[in-house]
Design a protein around this nucleic acid. Structure first.
Lengths: 214, 214
DNA sequence: TCGCATGAGTTAGACCCTATAACTTCAGGG
DNA sequence: CCCTGAAGTTATAGGGTCTAACTCATGCGA
């Protein structure tokens, strides 16, 4: 690895920013994003209130950084799994494990959005990378056209897919992958299965099996 | 209908409570629950700040009342549809229409939960009523056992279903109904399809068709 | 090596919010 | 008809975000 060309000023700055995010994740895991407090983080770091604004211009900017890191984390997890040969079911389980590992991190991305907030461009780029990983997995499966309405419709609206050679059937399957995965996970992580007694993992597996035509 | 036995005191009180909730829903629709402000509501009603606490003991209690009303509203919509002869697909479209009618109301129930918050018992009762409506619709369809693992598992964990004569296959289908419906709706309402260009309604219909084995 | 520009941190304070306490006012019900 | 209690008020404590104005020290260019 090449020597770091940044001076001590910037190195210190990057380290403090990382420490702030670390504390933010700890708070998030226990209190949720709505109760995330810059003041509390600052005091944990031994500095007082406004000092934090040297590192993040606002609460929104800190949260945006966390969202970006969350997307990056999921993209890496999926990429790693895919590179290790995971098929569609393997990717689904990767997503579930990633979500259960830190439910608030999952909810930060896929939970209730704040009206008016718009994600920055680079997170949508990572989001596209995530989608591409799933689409690729379906491509390798050589999915057959289904003749369904949605498939023709997606053929006409494939801008989000990047590569124009992807079969529309793969696009449909990739979308279904996400709706199925989130269907179980969003209910599970929001606690709606909590008092029902059954094991959500079995429900998840069942949905994935169905998705694969098994 | 019998004459109202409540005096003017209680009648006025009920009316003010209703007015507060009305304003709360308006705020919610535009700002989301995290920015719901009791002070702002009070000022809209021409009273100042603390007066609101005569009617709701805390912000949480107001939100709880809103959650209860949201559950009630969905339960009524589904019951009405079922009484009018709607099948499973009809119920699914009822849920979607209800969700799109006020996305923040949907998210209030199925969006990110506040860690530590626990819904009061009567909302879980309404929730059970909602589930029962869907289970009944599947019962009328006479669903066949699938032999899947989850089905046997649900047979052993059917406490949430009330009626012990419901076939396990219907329980499985009813759960799948909700995971499918929420899978599309949670992504759609959180805006994740916003820049993709396709019509989420077609994706929703496709998932429901698949759910019905079509 | 020296000096200073710049960045890190401070306190004070404006402004938002929830919530409680202590008070006044008024009207419904015994 | 009176008086109790409910409805509303202001004051205040305490928490939060964020800006402004300041001090201090350090790393960088000359």
């Amino acid at each position: 690895m090449g020597a770091d060309v940044t001076g001590p000023r910037e190195r210190y700055r990057a380290q403090v920013r990382a420490e702030i995010k670390q504390r933010a994740w700890e708070q998030l895991a226990t209190t949720g994003v709505s109760a995330l407090s810059l003041k509390a983080i600052a005091e944990q770091l031994g500095m007082s209130g406004p000092a934090l604004y040297r590192y993040f211009a606002s609460r929104d900017e800190l949260i945006t950084a966390l969202i970006r890191d969350a997307y990056r984390s999921l993209a890496d997890a999926l990429r790693t799994a895919a590179d290790a040969g995971a098929d569609v079911a393997g990717l689904a389980h990767t997503v579930r494990a990633w979500a259960l590992d830190d439910p608030q991190r999952y909810l930060l991305i896929w939970g209730t959005p704040v009206p008016g907030y718009h994600a920055p461009d680079d997170t949508t780029a990572i989001s596209a990378e995530i989608m591409a990983t799933v689409v690729d997995a379906y491509r390798r499966r050589d999915v057959q056209p289904s003749g369904r309405r949605i498939e023709a419709h997606l053929d006409d609206h494939r801008g989000w897919a990047g590569d124009p050679t992807v079969p529309a059937a793969a696009l449909r399957q990739a979308l279904a992958f996400w709706t199925r995965v989130h269907g179980v996970l969003s209910l599970e992580l929001a606690g709606h299965f909590a008092d029902m007694g059954f094991d959500p993992a079995l429900l998840f597996d069942d949905e994935i099996d169905d998705l694969l035509g098994r």
